[in-house]
Amino acid sequence: MNSNPVAIAGKLLNLAGCFVYPSAEMAEQLQLDLTDLENNHVRLFMSDRGGVKAPPYAGCYLDSEDRHRFMINFNGLCLRHGVVLGTSHPPDHIPAMLEALTLLSARADDSADLDIFILLDTYYHHWPTAFAAALDQHDRTGFYAALGAEIKETLVALRHDCLPQGHQSLQSPYALRA
């Protein structure tokens, strides 16, 4: 994993951009049929028989926390550090969280009260596996399955790079609770 901050930020932004509703340009670049991409985007993220298959909201994958608390805490953290999440999605919208991470990790470098490892451990650790699994199971284009896997791998690697010296056991995921 390349821990160059600029490269990582670029990668996170790119991953976030993959959640945009498919365009002809995107289909062309992926060499996939646009209608297929659209249908899969709708099924996975918006609406499908039996319930939307992979809601792009981190709080939907937590077994250890109330989604409301997670959203309240994450939005509070962003507000404290000058990051404004868009209002057209709930605060646990995964692409927004990925973009926020680029801004937050820049803040962490010069802020005493924002620890990048605790940030990753609290908000970016408990859902990527389940989200990737949902995409892997239900995506029929391969694109979204790859996206899920890539998000998971990126966040795991980032967390590993940030692991504090000598810390093999992890801090409580509730360290940041208000």
């Binding site: 932004l13 790119n14 951009g17 945009v20 995107m26 670049q29 694109f143 790859a146 996206l147 890539e150």
Partner: peptide, 13 residues
């Protein structure tokens, strides 16, 4: 897919 086209897709637009 990862090796190929993902890199630029998310940056579109």
């Amino acid at each position: 897919f990862i090796a190929g086209s993902l890199a630029g897709v998310g940056a579109l637009g």
